[in-house]
Amino acid sequence: MSQLSDLYQEMILDHNKSPRNFGTLPGANHQALGHNPLCGDQLTVYARVEDGVIREVSFIGKGCAISKASASLMTEALKGKSEGDAELLFTKFHDLLTGPPDVKADGKGLGKLAVFSGVREFPVRVKCATLAWHTLRQALAGSPTVASTEGGDPEAGG
């Protein structure tokens, strides 16, 4: 029971219910569509990047509480970060999710994202928590693979 509330922390339930930066992003110069075929979740992540700095980031889509809250908290965490810092943050976040379940997670440097520390006890849910991040990376890389299904060149206008 305690493990369930480790996963579904208040902040996660709140961001699931009222996701932040939820919507398309006018002026976005990067976007990508991410898909988790296992559960049918789909997210589109939009970003406006100037001089290597993520000025704005938003998302739309359907997903479980974990993937929606993760996307929402990611958009908050990345605003104003350089692309390099975003990559470092993702590495830290990924380590938080996939560390050994019997070791208490160290959320240092992750800020609010540390709220996902409970996910490591639910290995099948790691993909839910990382979907938005993988999609963002794809958007920043300008990879056209999935993004092309949205009909726009992710690099267009950039």
Binding site: K62, C64, R125
Partner: peptide
């Protein structure tokens, strides 16, 4: 508004 994946995890516990 409750995703099936969340339902599955909670039921499993």
């Amino acid at each position: 508004e409750i995703h099936p994946h969340d339902i599955g995890t909670i039921l499993d516990r």
